[in-house]
Every structure is written in structure tokens, then in C-alpha cells.
């Protein structure tokens, strides 16, 4: 007896067939997929507009079947604000690295969150500037070596890594803000739940939503992919704890 084959796994409709340019072991690709699956499952692909950052994921639009805008470095939240204000019926999201969002684009993200703009931000924190070759980011860990902090980040001169999720959740304006990881399958499942919820809240017109994802950069960290996922767990997670920092459904302010 033959039964017809059951489809159990496929490329999300929101993803294109292009092969990504990401380095082996980089988790940008995993995060892309979680965004695409969320758009598919909520039926949002054909009314979504993404805003690409400047950083390793600048070419994100090549990997999606979704309309995309390419922002100047750090300005994605301003572009998203402009688009969403004139087309409130559409679903708008930004995808940004830590240099993009927490350094040059700090002003734009804080004010977009504070105005309660109804878009979603996927914030990829890999503790380094990937695209430009591994310079220090505002999220670089204390004593972490980078090409502009070869002796390790000196917190006396460069300050401590900025915890964006905690900082944005101090704003009184309602928002959904969560930090997730993608360094084990269980974490990936939880990350997906948070991303999907962020989009659902936007769909319902509720609030600004941001999911910070702890990500890897084996190339610029100078360690292999397996050690990289371990490093996220041992070195990043204690400083950047996972969790939900603000949730309108929890009655948070």
C-alpha cells in the first residue's frame, strides 16, 4: 500500500530561493527564517514591507519574497515610521544589527518606540560590527577583543555594553519587548513564538514591538560555530538575560 507523501517541511513562502551570503555558523539565516515563517503563518506576506539595515543583513531583501526598503545606516525606524503612518493598513518591520540600532540609530529607535509606532523591529545583537570587519559595537562584551579593541573592551573608556531591551522597556508608552536566543533548538522555538507575537500585536494595531535576538558572528569572534553558540550562552546570556521586558497583554506600562 502506498500513501501519498505528506509535506512536513518546506521553505516559507515569504523566503526566496536565493542562497544567503552569510558565513558558516552565522545565525542571521536562522532569524530570517523565523521572520518568514511568522509572516506566512499570520498570512502577512503580501501586505508586508521590510526595512533593511546597513550591516551584514543589508541584502536581506534578496532572501525574502516581500517588498523591501533599504535604509541609511541606523535609520530604519524612521523609514518604518514614515511608511506605516501613511499606510497603517500594511505590516512594516525593520531588521537591524547592534551597530545599526544601538549606535548610529539610537535616536531613531528610542523615539519610534516612545511614539509607540505600530511596527516591528527584529534586533540582531551579535556583540560586534560584522559587515565592516569586526569592530567594537555598543554591545561588545567587557574585555571582548575586536579590531578596534584589540586588548579587549575597556569599560572605563568605552562604557559597558548597552542593554537595549531593558532600556526601551523603561519607556512609559506601551510596547512588546523581548530578548531571545537562537543557540539551541529550544531557544529557536521560543524565539519564533516571540517574533510571531510581535507581528500579531502589530496586526492588531496594539503597539510597537521589538524582539532582540542574541546572534553569533563566528567569523569576527574568531571561534568556530559550535564554540560561538556556546559563547552566547556562557558570555552573552548572563549579561543580556532572555525574557519579556514589556508586554501590553501582561498589563505592563
Amino acid at each position: 500500500m502506498t500513501s501519498s507523501p505528506t509535506l512536513i517541511f518546506k521553505r516559507p513562502d515569504a523566503m526566496s530561493e536565493n542562497v544567503t551570503h552569510y558565513c558558516p555558523g552565522c545565525t542571521h539565516g536562522v532569524i530570517h527564517r523565523l521572520v518568514a515563517e511568522s509572516l506566512d503563518e499570520l498570512g502577512l506576506r503580501d501586505r508586508a514591507v521590510g526595512v533593511a539595515p546597513v550591516g551584514c543583513s543589508v541584502l536581506i531583501y534578496n532572501y525574502f519574497n516581500v517588498d523591501f526598503l533599504e535604509a541609511p545606516h541606523g535609520r530604519a525606524p524612521a523609514l518604518a515610521t514614515g511608511f506605516k503612518r501613511v499606510r497603517p493598513d500594511m505590516i512594516v518591520f525593520t531588521y537591524q544589527g547592534d551597530g545599526d540600532l544601538a549606535s548610529i540609530g539610537m535616536g531613531e529607535i528610542v523615539h519610534a518606540a516612545n511614539r509607540g509606532e505600530k511596527f516591528t523591529t527584529i534586533f540582531v545583537n551579535n556583540a560586534i560590527y560584522g559587515m565592516t570587519g569586526g569592530q567594537m559595537a555598543p554591545t561588545t562584551m567587557p574585555n571582548q577583543r575586536t579590531t578596534t579593541s584589540p586588548a579587549g573592551r575597556d569599560v572605563n573608556k568605552a562604557g559597558f555594553p548597552i542593554r537595549m531591551s531593558e532600556m526601551l522597556s523603561t519607556l512609559k508608552t506601551p510596547s512588546y519587548i523581548a530578548r531571545v536566543g537562537v543557540f539551541t533548538p529550544m531557544h529557536i522555538i521560543n524565539a519564533k513564538k516571540a517574533i510571531k507575537k510581535a507581528f500579531r500585536l502589530q496586526m492588531e494595531g496594539k503597539c510597537f514591538s521589538m524582539v532582540e535576538v542574541l546572534s553569533t558572528c563566528p567569523t569576527n569572534w574568531g571561534i568556530n560555530p559550535i564554540e560561538s553558540t556556546k559563547w552566547v550562552k556562557t558570555d552573552m546570556e548572563p549579561y543580556f538575560p532572555l525574557g519579556v521586558f514589556s508586554d501590553p497583554e501582561r498589563g505592563d506600562d
Binding site: 541609511p72 515610521t81 531613531e108 528610542v110
Partner: peptide, 25 residues
Amino acid sequence: VFVQAESEVAVGNMLFGASASGKRV
């Protein structure tokens, strides 16, 4: 639509996003 932005850098980039929608800004 009226938005008072946080800076002129943001103004420019809001226009960038809004213009891509096809509306006049």
C-alpha cells in the same frame, strides 16, 4: 499625516519611508 520628528535626520528618513509608499510627502 502630521508627525513632529525627533530630529531633521529622522524627518528626512521618515520622508524616505513614506515616499516609497507612492503617496506624496
